[in-house]
Design a protein around this nucleic acid. Structure first.
Lengths: 203, 203
DNA sequence: TTTGTCCTATGATCTGGATCATAGGCCAGC
DNA sequence: GCTGGCCTATGATCCAGATCATAGGACAAA
């Protein structure tokens, strides 16, 4: 593969070829609210925070993007950014220029379809994650996660990261998650070997 | 069923013209996991629940769609549904046939762009709502909401629904929200007249 | 007018998860 | 081998928000 063709494999080669990488120091801004949009970004490494600041100086975090995440997709369809993006750590981002992607959307139906498909899938998983946060009990939240992420056998879940990562994803402290998993295992609802969890029959 | 050109104004006329309405009784299924996908839906009235059931019979809700919401967008890019959709109440839904939308994506760049734009905006707001749920304190959650939803003056928020609706959106009980708003008003952080809230200078 | 429903509101109590503290295991780098 | 950092794990305590209860007001239907 050509070096230029790294990153998001759901984008067509021409769009990926137009991508530009940029290195950021902690605290350095990627763009500011009101600035002219130049495209959307993919985080290669580090983390970037999107922040909205109101007149009274209060800040509100809209998103924290880590390696692999994309950000500011909506800016493709708007002339100006509507929030600030600031590197929270040393970070590398890849810019996919607006013009390249919009041109692809116009002239290349396959790319348009792939782009829409990715966004639709993101909407789906975000809705699911949000729905999970409506569950109060830690145990039911874990059940929800396991049920939805069970593999082809409908019972086995291989965690994509550490238990701490999962705890953050579930909106629990890691302590609460450890305890919950321990209890579920003790009561026979699951069996566990490291980050591989198997759901057992209910009842 | 009449296919008047109502509903989703972000879709081209030709797609809207192809829409089909369907009326559901409580408990009636809209589609089942594994079934061939026929398109995506918009809820006209009532509420529809998307549910995933695992081998052991456990259920997990993926989404609860109410009037105005859309569902199963991702099914456009997949041959089979991956969950069940069941009406939770008497409901009316509008089906946008897969073929019509996919054809539009291929041949009509404007529609493709509008569709992608809508999805991108949804991704953005969902990410923001999810981020908000990471905030533990009720007060900070309300602040986050107000800051992000402040109008052009950066201070005034007109709620789109009732306080109960807002409480649900924030992931709080209505009692907790009432108390939090009362305290914020008492301490001069906000002023409130019904569902119109004004942010005051930060303390 | 009366009844019923729903939103708003606030008091009293309870609890599950957050927080704080401690410790063992594992691995990378020195 | 030793050290430091991080993940895993569990105990003790605390507290914000959930839950339960009660009540006034707005509004629609009967």
């Amino acid at each position: 593969m050509k070096s230029a063709e790294k990153g998001a494999d759901w984008l067509s080669g021409s769009v990926r070829a137009a991508a530009v990488e940029r290195r950021l120091k902690p605290g350095q801004a990627l763009f500011h609210a009101g600035g002219k949009t130049s495209g959307f970004y993919e985080v290669v490494s580090g983390t970037v925070r999107m922040v909205r600041v109101d007149r009274s100086g209060r800040e509100a975090v809209l998103q924290v993007a880590s390696a692999g995440d994309t950000l500011a997709e909506a800016s493709l369809f708007s002339p100006a950014y509507h929030c600030d993006a600031v590197a929270a750590t040393e970070a590398v981002v890849r810019l996919y220029p607006k013009s390249a992607l919009l041109a692809a959307l116009e002239h290349d139906p396959a790319t348009a379809k792939a782009f829409a498909a990715r966004l639709a899938r993101q909407v789906m998983t975000l809705r699911t994650r949000l729905e999970r946060r409506n569950i109060h009990s830690a145990r039911d939240r874990v059940r929800h996660y396991l049920t939805i992420n069970a593999g082809a056998d409908g019972a086995t879940v291989v965690l994509p990261g550490t238990l701490k990562d999962l705890a953050a994803d579930l909106g629990l402290t890691h302590e609460a998650l450890y305890r919950t998993l321990a209890r579920m295992a003790a009561e026979g609802e699951i069996t566990r070997a490291g980050t591989v969890i198997k759901l057992k029959r209910a009842g």
